[in-house]
Design a protein around this nucleic acid. Structure first.
Length: 451
DNA sequence: TCTGGGGTCCTAGGACCC
DNA sequence: TCTGGGGTCCTAGGACCC
């Protein structure tokens, strides 16, 4: 048995924990750059506001109904997520953190131990609410896909009290009939259109298609697994998250710029800043990377811009894995210069680190690298080219004095007509965040005072 | 004026290996 | 007349997830 616990309107709920005056009122949270709606309270959903709606398109509706608007505050959401996951780790045998607001619980064998898992699921839910203030729903079922399905039904049907346990074939069949095929985990827009065109409208219909049909029309083995999981046959196990943190197979950092950029130096500075952040996350995870991708994108919404909207370049690092920002930056420069088209207005850039592995699993030296200076002893060479000490100091300074206190110079915006370089200036790639709430749980100056 | 960011898994062709 | 089979790695892209 799997449990799936999912926080209700997570970002909105985080804002409400510290500002309870927003309870019962419509509230939305915007994406980076205040671009789109990415979290909506129940009241906001009732107004017809949709996930992903561009802010500028719904601005009037928001004003008209006095909807509270927040910029996203990831320092707050990340910390609240950590608290939720920590509690789950205390009450479940194994937890897989699936996203910032969701976790799978391994409940194998718990039925024989506890009897009905309904009461247990309610207890977990109440525990999270009591310790973090975050409301959740729980689905329990024999496969992950069915646990997601149960969770979705629990969210929509308030009469269920936030929990749905699919403990019999009859209840599973009933649940499958409740859910439109497009709401099944793993069925996106493209597949939903294909399925409904073929007369497959509900999850129950999808559970009846043949293995070969699923392979042919739903992305091969992925589709075949999806159908099996709906039938109650598990294809995916639980991948426990070690000590409440998530270890990733790739790390990326990307941003839409605050304004379109056509100067190479501006885009390079942005790439350097994103790379610095990605490398920081890499080191925090205790890994090195040996594959680097850089991409730059044009504005896909502009009428006069033709596809492709994005170009990427990937490199397997010739000198092996590293977590050194300056080493990675050297390669990132080369990749960017391959992608650059002069006279183009760029809208966004990003970097991705792949091929992650713990350091020291086989240092590959560079055959063509310049010979080390004669005074350097052989055991010091690795330190010079990889400089773990420098990176550790960089991370420690930024941890203590705030992110970006010490940076590689390439990532510092050049002085321009919008201001001067330095800590006070806004980089040209930085976007808007007009309505950001305080970092209530992660910054001393932002602590709430209780009288 | 104005449309997010960070992930996973899979596919497929080409270069290369023995 | 006529040119193998079984692999890996690299790179780019597509579909999906929250």
């Amino acid at each position: 048995m799997f449990g799936l616990l999912d926080c209700n309107n997570f970002y909105v709920s985080c804002e409400r924990v510290f500002q309870p005056r927003y309870e019962g009122r419509p509230v939305v949270v915007l994406s980076n750059n205040d671009g789109n709606l990415i979290s909506r309270s129940a009241e906001a959903k009732a107004l017809g506001l949709k996930m992903g709606d561009p802010y500028f398109q719904v601005k009037e509706v928001l004003k008209q109904h006095d909807v509270a608007v927040f910029s996203s505050n990831y320092a707050l959401y990340g910390d609240m997520s950590r608290r939720v996951m920590y509690h789950l780790g205390q009450v479940a045998p194994a937890v897989e953190i699936y996203s910032i607001d969701e976790a799978f619980l391994d409940l194998a064998g718990m039925e024989t131990y506890l009897g009905n898992l309904d009461a247990y699921a309610h207890k977990v839910r109440a525990g999270v609410k009591e310790r973090t203030g975050i409301p959740t729903c729980v689905g329990v079922a024999p496969t992950k896909t069915l646990a997601k399905l149960a969770n979705r039904i629990a969210k929509k049907d308030a009469a269920l009290g936030g929990v749905l346990y699919l403990n019999s074939a009859e209840r599973r069949a009933w649940a499958l009939r409740q859910v439109p095929v497009g709401d099944v985990w793993g069925v996106g827009r493209q597949y939903a259109a294909k399925l409904t065109a073929a007369g497959i409208d509900s999850a129950a219909d999808l559970a009846r298609v043949s293995d070969s049909w699923a392979r042919k029309f739903l992305g091969g083995v992925v589709g075949a697994r999806l159908v099996q999981e709906l039938q109650g046959r598990p294809c995916a196990g639980l991948h426990p998250s070690e000590d409440g943190t998530l270890s990733r197979q790739s790390i990326s950092c990307s941003r839409t710029f605050g304004r379109p950029l056509s100067a190479y130096s501006d885009v390079l500075a942005a790439v350097a800043a994103f790379l610095s952040r990605a490398a920081e996350k890499l080191r925090a995870q205790g890994d090195t990377a040996h594959v680097l991708t850089v991409y730059i994108s044009k504005n896909r919404f502009a009428a006069n811009v033709l596809p492709p909207f994005s170009r990427s370049a990937t490199l397997t690092l010739p000198a092996g894995p590293t977590a050194d920002t300056t080493v990675l930056l050297g390669y990132a420069r080369a990749l960017l210069s391959r992608l650059w088209e002069p006279g183009t207005a760029y809208h966004k850039a990003g970097v991705v680190l792949d091929g992650l592995e713990p350091p020291g699993t086989g240092q590959q030296l560079d055959l063509f690298a310049p010979a080390p200076a004669p005074l350097v002893l052989p055991e010091k060479r690795a330190v010079l080219s990889q400089r773990p000490g420098l990176m550790a100091s960089l991370d420690a300074l930024n941890e203590r004095f705030g992110r970006g206190t010490v940076r590689v110079a390439t990532a510092v915006p050049a002085p321009g007509h919008h201001g001067t370089a330095g800590s006070g200036a806004r980089a040209p790639w930085e976007g808007k965040a007009q309505w950001r709430s305080p970092a209530f749980t992660t910054r001393l100056e932002d602590l709430l005072l209780v009288n």
